[in-house]
Design a protein around this nucleic acid. Structure first.
Lengths: 182, 182
DNA sequence: CCGGTATTTAAATAGGTATTTAAATAAGTT
DNA sequence: AACTTATTTAAATACCTATTTAAATACCGG
């Protein structure tokens, strides 16, 4: 069973009321707010190392966390800092994970050309001139796996860590069944 | 009978004599005059929210009004401001409506594919890849109606509010007769 | 080392797509 | 010289693209 390492969790929530982003930009040191470029205010934390996007509607997106725990910690910290700036918000927002990016390692080098032919054209994209990874789309769980010649892989699109595990198991079995991995 | 909402009235008139647009641009705060780009001077009002185009010939185009009354008010205001700047003009210009844009709602969702086939190719254009609305041209009154899947519609090209009503009635009856609307 | 190539995802906003119409001027084509 | 296209303004409608953020992976070029 390959070791899976979660690299990035993207989650969203709502602070329950509209936010005055101009006021928040002034109150939070280091906040970035350039509405002509992007409607969200960007606020980064050093620990957990994350970037949180705040929107006028009160919606929030948090990226960069390595676990759901880190997401909770980051959003809590940001909410407290906003509250300290005098803005009333819902203290216990419901956090929803929207995307997990994880990496793993099949433990051996693999032949991407052979795999592209074996796994079938409808699920595979492999254009080495454009990008060195082979793109493999799985229906269930609904994720995308990037396979590399080194045997390393990246899995994106999952909303639960279990989905990542299932996807890695699935592709491992498929490659073994096709004789493309021992 | 669907409620019809007039969204934009375009009207033209003449102030009776040639206008020195350079002088007017200097006299009217906020006037825009870039003759290399467009031969008209653009002057906007906040109330009624309109944009009036002034031409060297004395011709005038007013857009953005929600009613003929607003057109009259806007042109009157602009004329007074030009006169206050020392330019003699005809006080009671004859205003002619050139275009009315109105919106309405059929009150139910409609199947644009079925409608495109049913109403006939010579009056209908429906290219959803290019624009989500179905373009329906009516000969009498001579207007164009944009139909949307939501049942909402936009009618353009009319010169009288009654033309809009007639067009909406006409298309409503046609859709009912074809069994495409209850 | 940096930026780009590719993948995923939420959030919200802008610009584009199309339709109509007057006005006048420039540029391009026949 | 005549004709055509484009420019600008406003508005409703609905759909698309793009923008930004983070991260792993591996390859290219500067």
């Amino acid at each position: 069973m390959a070791v899976i390492k979660i690299a990035n969790v993207v989650a969203s929530t709502s602070l329950g009321g509209e936010l005055d982003l101009q006021a928040i930009a002034l109150a939070l040191d280091g906040a970035e707010y350039e509405p002509e470029q992007f409607p969200g205010l960007i606020y980064r934390l050093k620990e957990p190392k994350t970037a949180t996007l705040l929107f006028r509607s009160g919606k929030v997106v948090c990226t960069g966390a390595k676990s759901l725990e880190q997401v909770k910690t980051a959003i809590s910290k940001v909410a407290k800092q906003i509250e300290a700036a005098g803005i009333v918000i819902k203290i216990e927002p419901k956090i929803e994970v929207q995307n997990i990016v994880a990496s793993s390692d099949l433990g051996a080098q693999i032949n991407l050309n052979a795999i592209a032919i074996s796994l079938g054209l409808e699920k595979v994209e492999y254009e080495p001139e454009q990008f060195p990874g082979l793109v493999y789309r799985i229906d269930s769980p609904k994720v995308v796996v990037l396979l590399f010649g080194s045997g390393k892989l990246v899995c994106t699109g999952a909303r639960k860590p279990e989905d990542v595990e299932a996807a890695v198991d699935k592709i491992t079995e498929e490659l073994k069944a096709a004789g493309l991995l021992r």
